[in-house]
Amino acid sequence: MAKLPFTNDIRTLRFLAGEMTQGDLGDRVGVTRQTIAAIEQGKYSPSLEVAFRIALVFGKPLEAVFQWETGSD
C-alpha cells in the first residue's frame, strides 16, 4: 500500500480534547472506531466530508488536523 502524502494530528488533538477515545470521535464524525484508527495511522485516506467533520469536532481548521507532507507530489 502506498504511503499517504499527508500526516495528521488526530491522536494529539484527541488527547488535548480530554483524552477523547477513537470510538467517541467516530461516533461524533459518523464513522466506526476502526476507520478513525486507520485514518490516524495513515492507512486510510478519508473523504473530504469526513476530514472536515473531524476538524469540526476539534474546532480547528482542516490544515491544523491534516498536513500535506513537504516533497510529496
Partner: peptide, 8 residues
C-alpha cells in the same frame, strides 16, 4: 447494528 461507513 453499526452502520457501514465510507471505509467499509
Amino acid at each position: 447494528h453499526l452502520a457501514e461507513d465510507e471505509r467499509d
